[in-house]
Design a binder for these strands. Sequence first.
RNA 1: UUCAUAGUAAGCCAAUUA
Length: 441
Amino acid sequence: VDSYLVLAIRFCNIGLTGRASDLLQGMVKTHIYASDSSIEMALNSIIGCYHSCSGNNPVVFDVMVDACRRHKMLDAAAKILSGLKIRGVTPSLRSYNGVLSDLLKGGRIKQFWGVHKCMLEAGLAPNIYTYTFMVGAYGKAGNINEAKGVLVEMTEKGCAPNAVTYNVLIGRLCQGGKVNEALNIKREMGKNGLIPDVFTYSTLVNGLCKEQRLQEAKALVAEILNVGLKTNCVAYSTLLDGFISNGEIDEAFKVRDEMLAQGIQLDVTGYNALIRGLCKLGKMEKACQLLNEMVRMGCEPDAVTYGLVIGGYLKDKDVNGAFTMFEKMKKSVMPTVVTYSLLVNGLCHGGDLQRADGVLHEMVASGLKPNVVIYTALITGYCRKGRIEDAREVFKRMVEGGITPDVRSYNSLIIGLCKAGEMDNANMYLVEMKEKRLTPN
RNA sequence: UUCAUAGUAAGCCAAUUA
């Protein structure tokens, strides 16, 4: 560890931060674990080496934090920040913000506030990024009033919110079903001299669509042009998807025509939304035509595109169609866990558990790790066939593989056990899930 | 070296009465 650090510190001293970054990423990967002791050791080393080699570029501390982030070791990053604070070293505000961003994205709100507190204690003043993250953190936890309070607080501190800050608030409101309030916030933006941008509009269009308020959503998409903003394919495909979700496929295609008329090409997500609509209606030839069209137009299908078509075939119980598409997919796109779980689930529904298991093996062989969804699909499949022992076996394998069963996994197994008359075992799992603090539904 | 906002695919489906 010392050798890595000495080199990294010297690289930073002479401005070669890129080299330092490569080194520390390697070091974090091989020598830092979640354990407190390995982190304490690294902290003591970095401070010691910094002094002993006359470190003069504190950027090396940022680089260290960044290295943890790149390896998704957020616990380590947080511990390093607090460990450095105790030792009187303060990484940059950006460094703190980066960790806050990752924690927020991961939904780790409690840790988010821990790092935030640490940052204040280190004497760093929040900037507009920090405040925007705070809005997001409160909003994600459903604390809308606190989120709004952040806007007031930052204004008082002389850091006026910008459109992004407002957009985050609007997004959280929409997510909590408070679309009307979100629309009010958009008006408030205007009063505060901020112009709603395409992000503001798309967020609101999405919120309205999710509430099935499609006419209002459509009007808002039109408003983008009316107020003189440059519209884009996100705004249109959000609306397009809204109509698809609502079963109005003709309206969806009208949105596509409108966007083409505006000179905006469909992107992958737009095509995917249309393909989803066609698959939903079982119009598989049309879906395939659209897939071919997108290739012709130079828009590369992705794993989602193929997943939609595969799912469409499976819904029609056309297993051969699904696998033909799967083979075609593999020529250009890497299947994901979702692709495999579509197949496993489809095969389970058709009762072909042997093949389902084979698909799971293929997935593992390709280097993907099974997740809770795919295991649960398999458990359900075995239960439906009355093969309860096999279902329990899969459940066990999942736990041993380090995957935590969720409420749905327990439901599958418990329902299977109940149907097989094994009430004692069903009860045992019910007790177990409560012990694991999962709330039965 | 490092910081923020928008759109698309996967798993459980029980209980009452008839």
